[in-house]
């Protein structure tokens, strides 16, 4: 399985709003911790090491360093 980088969410605006809602009311540190848990949960769900490696590379590259 290669990493899906084309649109894959049925309701992208809806998901984005849900993501923000999950962070609402959290401190900076609590938000970072939630993201960390979320990454682990999603990584396990994907399960495919090659797709995960591609996601890590994309995330890093998009940050510019």
């Amino acid at each position: 399985m290669s990493l899906v980088t084309t649109p894959n969410l049925a309701d992208p605006d809806g998901f984005y709003a849900a993501l923000l809602a999950a962070h609402r009311g959290l401190s900076e540190a609590e938000s970072a911790a939630l993201d960390a848990r979320l990454v682990l949960i999603l990584a396990n769900h994907i399960g495919d090491r090659a797709a995960l490696e591609a996601a890590l590379a994309l995330a890093r590259a998009a940050g510019g360093r």
């Binding site: 911790a33 848990r37 682990l40």
Partner: peptide
């Protein structure tokens, strides 16, 4: 630290 704590919490 953040990921370690995330693993333990989960």
């Amino acid at each position: 630290r953040r990921f370690r704590d995330a693993v333990l919490a989960l």
